[in-house]
Design a protein around this nucleic acid. Sequence first.
RNA 1: GGCGCGUUCGUCUAUCGGCUAGGACACGGCCCUCUCAAGGCUGAAAGACGGGUUCGAUUCCCGUACGCGCUACCA
Length: 455
Amino acid sequence: MSLPVRVRFAPSPTGYLHIGGARTALFNWLFARHHGGTFILRVEDTDTARNTQAAVDVIFQGLRWLGLEWDEGPQTSDPAGPSRGEFGSYFQSQRAGVYRRRLQELRDRHLAYDRDGAVYFRMTREPIAIPDLIVGDIVRPLTDREQADPDWVLWRSDGQPVFHFVNVVDDLEMKVSHVIRGEDHISNTAKHLALFRAFGVEPPRYGHIPLILNEDGSKMSKRDRGAVVTNYEDEGFLPAALVNYLALLGWSPADGQEQLSVPELIARFDLDRVNRSAARFDVKKLEALHFEHTRRLDPDAYVAQATPYLKRAGLALDSYPLAYVRAALLTTQEKGKRFRELPLWCDFYFTPDEAVTFEAEASTKALTPAAGPMLIQLSQAFDAVSEFTAAGLEAALKQRAAAAGVKVGALVQPCRVACTGRLVGPSLYHLLEVLGRERVRARLVRAAARCGSGG
RNA sequence: GGCGCGUUCGUCUAUCGGCUAGGACACGGCCCUCUCAAGGCUGAAAGACGGGUUCGAUUCCCGUACGCGCUACCA
């Protein structure tokens, strides 16, 4: 590893960022960060019919959400816009001159020639050995078709260079040291190696990583929800959790530790512990990691992450004092839920007392005729509490239960439903404290009246 | 069809010839408990198949099956 590490992620802007592409980007990024190298973003936008600036934005947004900042590459999604790095442009659509120059170079050396209006590469007739950092050394003999005619097209008759050519030229020009990409490119590598040889330069080192499959083992297509990175953002997964999960698909640290922060991943990631076999995507495990990462978040970060999702869901957070919003959200942190489902756990904080709605099952189970008087008594007991805190409220409620000769649960559930409208939610005493004396009183009284009427 | 890559509990994985095959997620049971959880303890669960090599194979080699990739003037 004498040369400086330079790796690249080279997506084609097709309108979405594939989860497999995201993991390829992640492995490249981790490898670069681990070795103090450079992570390059290059946009392969040669398909002018399909590629749009909006599609480029989707990729940028996905990478940024995951925290995969690039050291070299475009600064804006406009192909003609500015870029960072000395080897730009980083949009293939802007690099026609480079490709033409390189093509001429091959022609001058009689390694490229015209046939039927296209330019062909004079491919080696020998089997090609592909050294791979992950799969091991592979020898790929020529296929029967290649035996008959090993040469292949570099430049189409319509005036466009082909993928294999621009890919190699760019890796060469951008001084890429390691190519980490999906194993679907493993056979293509023979062509790429031959091209590097034709240019008379040392090829990069290759590492082909296995594919990601659906949960049922089928191939992921763009139609699969789980294949699209934005869906994970919409669902409210923590990016650090997705990064952690993705890293574990095909790679594992020597000691088997599974919860890893991004800095830990950077410190420990390397190619020698990457697998060779395809892995299925298991949302349950992602959820488990999301749970762990979420609980470990510092309170301010948790509030900052959760807030946009709740606003998007229509909760009027802005109508409440910041301290109240913060306290309310923090009662949900230990639940470790996806942010998308957070409204189920905290919408009652942001609902006027008279507008709390009771779920049908909650109402029948907890707001029984017998519960009415108990709620009134509980309300009075809470009024008598000097400090309206979780500890004080817990003591008061337990005292009330003992005095009434009922189990604590017989009081807890009616109280919870009265205040939240639901049977599940954050810790009761904590949510009462956050709601405060006035709101709690109003809700208990209102629900008590409802008990009498039989729902 | 040809060539290449892959194959350990349901899932992700550990194992670099000695394994009573370990961990995590998911699942079952028990405990704890203000709901749902979480947490603690615990249970069930794997080496695709067939040959070799070896004192000994999950580990090395070959074959078969299955999956995937490439085999384009797609990327």
